[in-house]
Design a protein around this nucleic acid. Structure first.
Lengths: 195, 195
DNA sequence: TAACACTCTTAACATAGGTTAATGCTTTCC
DNA sequence: GGAAAGCATTAACCTATGTTAAGAGTGTTA
C-alpha cells in the first residue's frame, strides 16, 4: 500500500505530519537512517542488551515484549508500518533494556544510531520539538493502554484491540493476541466462541 | 521535609536534576508558575474539560483517574511532591480530557498555563529538551505500569505499589489503593490478610 | 452520650480466567 | 503420501477475584 514511495520518503512524509521542521534539519535527520530487512521471528534487542538504535517500520510488524521469570512471553505493543519503535527505557535511562523487541513478520525498517541522533539534538536544538512530539504521542498510547488494562474486561480489551489494530488478527497467531490482552490462548478462544 | 526552601526553589532544583538549562531560560520558565493551594478532594480537571495547565506538586498528593460508564472510579497514577502532572492527552491532542485529576490531600502546587509554555518553547527551542526529558521519564513510568498490570498478580502489584510509593498507603484509604491496583477493596483486604 | 458516616474486614456465593489434557485441523517437511 | 509440528478448540477442574451483605471499629456531629 506504500510501495510507491521509497522508505526515506515514507519517513519524511510521516515526520512532516507530526510537526513542521526545517528542510536542512529534516534532511540531516533522514540521513541518520539506513534500510534494514529482517526475517520474521528475529529479536532486534533482548533483555539486558544496551539499546542504541531507533527504528521506523516501513513494512511488516514488530512487537515489544517481556519474558517473566517463569519464561512466559507477554506482548506489550505491536508496531505497524509508519510508526517508530525504540528501547526507550534503555536509551533514556542509559540502562540495559528491560524489554525484548522482535519481528513477527518479515519486516523492513529504517534504523538510526541513537548517539547520532543525540548529536543532531545538540546541533539543532529545535529537533527536540520532534522528539518531544513523538514521545508525547507514545505516552498517550501508553495511557490508553493502561486505561484498557485496568478498566476493561478481557472481552472488551479484545474488541479494543480489533479497533486499534484493524486486520492485524488475521496475520498473527491468536496466542500472540492473547498475550497482548493479558490472558491465555484458551481464554481468548472462549471469548471468541461467545461473540 | 522540603519546608526549608520556597516552592520556586524546589521547582528549580528539580528541573536542574533532569537536564542542564541556561539560567535565562530557566528563570523565564520558573516565572510561568504561580503557587496554588487546594483542599483535599478537589478536581483540577474533569473528563470533557479542556486542559490548559501544567502542575508541579510542592506538597500533598494528586491522582489521575477515570470514571467508567457505570460510575466507578479507577485510579491511574498518584502524583507525589517533586513531580509534574498535566492532562497530557488533552494538551497534546488538543482534545477534551479523558481523565480526571484531583487532590487526595490538602495540596500545594505550582501551576503554569500551557499556552505560556508553548510560547516559551517557540522563544527558546532548546527548552524542548526539558519537555522531551520530562515526557520520556513519564513514558518510562507508564511502561513500567503497563508491565505490572499485564504480568503481575494483584498480590505482586500491591507489593510493587508499596515499593513505588513508600509510606503512601498510610495516608490514603485502602479503597484508593485497590482502585489503583485494579481490584476491589474486598480483594485487597483479603490479600493483606494473607501476607 | 447517641446517632451517623466512613472504612475495613469477613463470609457466602457467583463468575472470569488459569491449568491441563485431549482432539482435530493445517501446514511443513521428509 | 505420511509423519511431525504448530495452532485452535473444547472440556474438566481449580483458583483468583467480583458481588453482596453483615458486623466491627473509628471519628464526627448533633
Amino acid at each position: 500500500m506504500i510501495s510507491d514511495i521509497s522508505p526515506a520518503e515514507f519517513l519524511k512524509k510521516t515526520i512532516l505530519e507530526i510537526c513542521p521542521i526545517k528542510d536542512i534539519v529534516l534532511d540531516e535527520f533522514i540521513r541518520l537512517f539506513t534500510v534494514n530487512k529482517i526475517k520474521a521471528g528475529v529479536d532486534l534487542i533482548r533483555e539486558g542488551d544496551d539499546g542504541s538504535c531507533v527504528w521506523f517500520i516501513v513494512s511488516g510488524l514488530l512487537r515489544s515484549y517481556y519474558i517473566s521469570p517463569n519464561g512466559e512471553q507477554h506482548n506489550k505493543h505491536f508496531f505497524v508500518p509508519g510508526t517508530f519503535c525504540a528501547p526507550l527505557t534503555s536509551l533514556v535511562a542509559n540502562q540495559p533494556s528491560p524489554v525484548y523487541i522482535g519481528s513477527l513478520k518479515d519486516t523492513e525498517i529504517l534504523s538510526a544510531d541513537y548517539s547520532g541522533l543525540e548529536q543532531l539534538y545538540l546541533k539543532f536544538p529545535e529537533l527536540n520539538l520532534l522528539g518531544r512530539k513523538l514521545v508525547e504521542w507514545a505516552w498517550i498510547g501508553k495511557e490508553r493502554r493502561e486505561t484498557q488494562l485496568i478498566m476493561l474486561s478481557a472481552t472488551e480489551r479484545y474488541k479494543a484491540f480489533q479497533k486499534e489494530f484493524p486486520g492485524l488478527e488475521d496475520h498473527i497467531p491468536q496466542y500472540q493476541i492473547a498475550s497482548y490482552l493479558g490472558i491465555t490462548p484458551v481464554q481468548l478462544s472462549r471469548i471468541r466462541a461467545k461473540i
